[in-house]
């Protein structure tokens, strides 16, 4: 097996939240292997642990046991500075709530990670403009987030996540706060970036539209991986879900 085939691997990841007396195993031994260049959707009901897994993979929270490997490096072994470097260069984050810095313009938001990376200002600005063009917001570069629509803000956030050419983009419900048409645009944009730039994309989502573009879907329930499906199989199960009755009546499909 080539050492770099899997860009993300998790091994028996457990995360326990203690709520008063109760212990809640938000992640209960999660093992997933994600290949370079894959488009992965993590799906599951609300409260199943998608965001917790997102945080663990992105190094935003430490698991209580188990390990997360990014490019075969165990994240638990990294110190604060190395973690910051990883977040800066290797992973781009997209959130349901966009999390743009409200007092900065679109361009400043997109340029911010390049400042943390130590890129010279002019190069950073050129990169920021290039990315805003890619997401189709080049002409709105001087606008503040509050002057942009939700979909536009999310596109700025996507541009920002790409600022330092990450090899992974992690997105936690990127379409959760958007209407369905805008959501589709965002999904198409992510898919395009995945195809054209070879970025590995991992999204946690409720959005079944995501399934169409995913290479694989990881189903999570109660903190455990329920099943991992390839796209070919997915069409079937979604069809089954969308029209349960039809499926039952029609018997075998595909």
């Amino acid at each position: 097996m080539s050492a770099t085939e899997y860009i993300v691997r998790t091994k028996d990841v457990v995360k326990v939240f203690t709520l008063g007396e109760e212990k809640l195993r938000a992640l209960d031994g999660v093992n997933v292997d994600i290949r370079r260049g894959e488009y992965i959707s993590i799906m599951g009901p609300s409260g199943s642990g998608k965001s917790t897994l997102f945080n663990a993979i992105g190094g935003l929270d430490k698991p209580d046991s188990g390990s997360v490997f990014i490019n075969d490096v165990d994240m638990a072994q990294l110190d604060a500075g190395e973690l910051a470097y990883l977040r800066c260069h290797t992973i781009g984050y997209i959130f349901q709530t966009f999390n743009l810095i409200t007092v900065m313009t679109a361009l400043e938001n997109v340029t911010l990670p390049t400042i943390f990376a130590g890129t010279p200002t002019d190069d950073g600005i050129a990169r920021g403009m290039e990315l805003l063009d890619i997401v189709g917001l080049g002409h709105r570069y001087h606008h503040k987030p509050s002057q942009l629509s939700g979909g536009q803000q999310q596109r700025v956030a996507i541009a920002r996540s790409l600022a330092n050419n990450p090899s992974i983009i992690l997105a936690d419900e990127p379409t959760g706060n958007l209407d369905s048409k805008t959501g589709e645009e965002i999904i198409a944009l992510l898919r395009r970036l995945n195809k054209e730039q070879g970025v590995t994309i991992i999204t946690a989502t409720h959005d079944y539209k995501m399934v169409d573009v995913s290479d694989r879907v990881i189903w999570i329930r109660d903190g455990k991986v329920e099943k991992i499906e390839n796209r070919a199989d997915i069409q079937l199960s979604i069809g089954g879900m969308a029209g349960e009755a039809e499926h039952l009546a029609g018997g075998e499909t595909g």
């Binding site: 992105g58 604060a80 470097y85 260069h89 911010l112």
Partner: peptide
């Protein structure tokens, strides 16, 4: 705090 969290996600060092 949210802003601080966001900046950390973007790779800012704690000291910065």
């Amino acid at each position: 705090f949210r802003e601080i969290g966001t900046m950390k996600c973007l790779g800012a060092l704690n000291s910065l």
